[in-house]
Design a protein around this nucleic acid. Structure first.
Ligand SMILES: NC(=O)c1ccc[n+]([C@@H]2O[C@H](COP(=O)([O-])OP(=O)(O)OC[C@H]3O[C@@H](n4cnc5c(N)ncnc54)[C@H](O)[C@@H]3O)[C@@H](O)[C@H]2O)c1
Ligand SMILES: NC(=O)c1ccc[n+]([C@@H]2O[C@H](COP(=O)([O-])OP(=O)(O)OC[C@H]3O[C@@H](n4cnc5c(N)ncnc54)[C@H](O)[C@@H]3O)[C@@H](O)[C@H]2O)c1
Lengths: 206, 206
DNA sequence: TTCACAATGTGATTTTTTTCACAAGACAAT
DNA sequence: ATTGTCTTGTGAAAAAAATCACATTGTGAA
């Protein structure tokens, strides 16, 4: 129902709203929010409308109220538990990034097939041997996974994730996973991002 | 002129076409390509039309010809030189990833403000002190940069990049850079990706 | 030969997303 | 009190992207 793009932006709004709040700002105008996410004020108002919350022409939107609404929208004001599979270069970078606890994301455990890498605790999250994944996921009712294994292993690992009950996968491997439609997959494809960037930054368009 | 989404997919098509080629495949049908990028065959044909190349209803598209066309489209059958700023966790992960030389991306140099990190060679690319960035960029006519510095440093570093002549920035910092419209910025926002993923994978929609 | 099939290329249509544009309301300044 | 200036909320329009649907055309089986 809510447009996909709106969902993405709501996540950004929340982040910037929290920063604004920390700075003591108590209300914001749509154009300020727009600046923060490189959008237009009309778009911001549309997004907030989808959220069902409103501001006043005088004071704009109340920061706290907005944050509360977005929290409700994502229905996780608390932290969301996710797991990470593949403790290689990006895997470790992500573990380090998310340990901070500044976001709503909590990487509760990580898994690897390399015996050398398991049973350690990297940035608060314990590393398990890959065989333990299924059990962990079902016991802890985990729904979301970050996949950082080599491309050659990605599909089979994704299959395991699916069978364990995972419903959403953030995939860093440069392959398109084949999974049933009820599993939501989001690809992070950096090579593609750069190629696109090169194309548009070499004066082709826009 | 060419839709942004099409540009993104063309990059993917090329990657998968090269894999197909390595496996000895000499022609592909639109639906095969569609499978590879999670799209529809009609969409693939549209994209390839934008490219101005055509196939035959009998043999589909010629793999080599398609690759050639896409290379031409991106007008860099050769490697594209980019620089990387901020040799931290993701910075190093990216250096390691792109050293392989398997893609069209070549990280020719990296820069950091930490004296400890410079003057080494990490994965083929020399690390320079940040002060040398401007000179390097203009002398080597670099147009594209990957930005991996902390959020607090991102805007000022982006300003330096812009003034040095950079036209496209792949930004990993969780802030929206304020730059003139002729600088193309692409954000990689992993926190947002995960939040979106959590939203859609918890049965909200789609 | 004739027919069914499978795939391309593309106009037309639909869906999704963004932008425009303006009524309405509060306030500050004159 | 009047005027000018902000901003919200939102229909209406536009733009961008995806999908539909079908004429067309080799190919091979009957
Ligand atoms: N590093 C980057 O910057 C980057 C950029 C874009 C894409 N990627 C992609 O992300 C993925 C990971 O990249 P990386 O650089 O971290 O690779 P890496 O080789 O450093 O790490 C891969 C990790 O996965 C583990 N692993 C291998 N098979 C496994 C399995 N079956 N089950 C569980 N764990 C397994 C390995 O032990 C290793 O720890 C790759 O698919 C890569 O193409 C990486
Ligand atoms: N690590 C991740 O998985 C991850 C995920 C999402 C976003 N990010 C973002 O990416 C950026 C980098 O993350 P990281 O984990 O690699 O951080 P990091 O702290 O490991 O690395 C930052 C690097 O930038 C260098 N640096 C600092 N100021 C600089 C300056 N002015 N000029 C040049 N170099 C400078 C530091 O010396 C350090 O090497 C951050 O903005 C972070 O928020 C990281």
């Amino acid at each position: 129902m809510t447009p996909e793009k709106t969902v993405a932006r709501l996540s950004l709004y929340r982040r910037f709203l929290k920063l604004a709040k920390d700075e003591g700002t108590s209300n914001v105008y749509s154009h300020q929010l727009a600046d923060m996410v490189r959008g237009t004020s009309a778009q911001v108002r549309r997004d907030l409308m989808a959220l069902g919350c409103s501001g006043s022409p005088q004071k704009g939107y109340d920061v706290n109220e907005l944050i509360k609404h977005i929290d409700e929208f994502f229905n996780t004001s608390e932290v969301v538990d996710v797991i990470l599979v593949g403790i290689g270069n990006i895997g470790r970078a992500l573990l380090s990034y998310f340990k901070s606890g500044k976001s709503h994301i909590n990487i509760v455990a990580s898994f690897d097939s390399d015996r050398q890498k398991v049973d350690r605790v990297i940035n608060n999250s314990k590393c398990y041997y890959i065989e333990e994944l299924s059990k962990f996921v079902s016991e802890n009712n985990i729904k979301t996974a970050i996949l950082c294994v080599p491309a050659s292993e990605a599909q089979q690992t994704a299959d395991v994730l699916m069978h364990s009950g995972i419903k959403g996968i953030l995939n860093f491997a440069p392959v398109r996973l084949k999974l049933p439609a009820n599993i939501f997959v989001e690809d992070v494809d950096i090579t593609m991002n750069i190629e696109k960037l090169v194309y548009f930054s070499s004066g082709k368009r826009k």
